[in-house]
Computed example of a mutant assay.
Amino acid sequence: MHAQGLEWRQLRGEDVEGKGWSETAAPFDRLPISAQALVPPSVWNLSHHSAGICFRFVTASPQIGVRWSVGGELAMPHMPASGVSGVDLYGRDSGGKWRFIGVGQPRQQVGNQVVFEGARGGPREFCLYLPLYNNTLRVELGFAPGTGLLPPPPRKHRPIVFYGTSITQGGCASRPGMAFTAIAARALERSHTNLGFSGNGKMELALAHLLSEIDASVYVLDCLRNMSEPQVLERLEPFVRQLRAKRPQTPILCAGDAFLDSPTEPSRSKITRETVERLTKAGIPGLVYLPMQNAWGSDGEATVDGVHPTDLGMSRQAEVFVKALKKLV
């Protein structure tokens, strides 16, 4: 499809969904400016990636154009450019369900462009996901003249906040809408904030403080892959206590590890489960441990490299989280 004749509108930081803070250094950053002095440099650098940030809108335009630019490498050896740096469009079908429409595959850092099929027969709700593993510098949307851009239906619920690892951030989904966090949010009809930091989900107390600034419906802690056993022993309880002190009633879901878990339950997951049980007995409410044994299935087909899930692994992991989150949100 061609972009000829479309009218273009630049997307601003205040337009999007999935940001936990409005005061950010760049429009599509995931942490506030104040976090730079609080978090490790590696977390700050990864916070410029636009994982989980999306734009919901309603339009009657039969074509929807997207122009976008990113600031880093387009792809990784184990993750395609369409997931690292691409944009992903979903739209609601006649029954109100979200359906994949198309992915914008980047070919350069600056000036990528794609035109999707838009609405037919009247206004329709859409959701555009931004890149998972790159700095998104600029986004423009194009619509047919006279079709207009309308606001989406307001969300009725507070967001789900995910904090974790490279898998939480979206590695190695083939496109942004296939991150397990995005799949789960669509299934639950909730907005979500993705605070996955590749290799750096390590439960520093500064992150507990930052998470508590977001008025969430539930906090999901999914950090075990990035933590050693001593780190889990040292950091999980203080992290939960800090978060609970600021948010006394919000559920906190502590996930086990899908890759490490086995019927005998390895120590990092065991430590997590026992910590949740001990804190619950101590009177701290709203803590849930989510075992992840066989979350990716038992056929060995759910990863790219034995560690990071494919779209199949993401879908399977999302199912496990949706089942648990339905009881909490």
Rank of each mutant, 00 (worst) to 15 (best):
E23T: 01
P62C: 00
I53A: 13
S50F: 00
P62V: 01
I53M: 07
G72D: 12
T59N: 14
P32T: 02
R67F: 01
I33C: 13
G52Q: 04
A37L: 11
V70Q: 06
L74P: 01
I33P: 02
L38F: 01
V43G: 15
T24E: 06
R67M: 05
H48A: 11
S42E: 15
P62I: 00
A35G: 04
A75C: 14
I53Q: 07
P41D: 12
P32Y: 00
C54V: 00
A26N: 06
S61E: 09
P27K: 08
G52A: 10
Q36M: 07
W68I: 01
A35H: 02
W44M: 08
H48F: 11
G72V: 10
S47I: 03
P41G: 15
L46F: 08
Q63M: 09
I64S: 14
G52C: 04
F57Q: 13
H49V: 02
S22D: 11
Q63F: 10
L31E: 07
C54L: 11
R30V: 01
S22G: 11
S47H: 01
G52P: 05
F55E: 15
S69I: 01
R30L: 01
A35Y: 00
V66Q: 05
A26T: 11
Q63V: 00
R67S: 07
N45D: 13
W68F: 13
A51P: 04
E73F: 06
V66S: 09
I53R: 04
E23H: 05
I64A: 14
A60C: 08
A37P: 03
I64L: 12
S61N: 01
F57R: 13
R56V: 08
A26E: 12
L46Q: 15
N45Q: 07
R30P: 00
P41S: 01
S22N: 10
A75R: 14
F55H: 12
G71V: 04
L31A: 10
L74R: 04
E23G: 09
V70Y: 08
S47D: 11
G52T: 03
S61R: 10
L46M: 13
E23L: 10
A37I: 10
L74M: 11
Q63D: 05
W44P: 04
V39C: 10
Q63N: 11
L46Y: 07
H49D: 07
A35N: 01
F28M: 08
D29A: 13
R30Y: 00
A51R: 08
H48T: 02
G52E: 10
A51H: 03
L31I: 03
G72Q: 05
L38V: 02
I64V: 10
T24V: 13
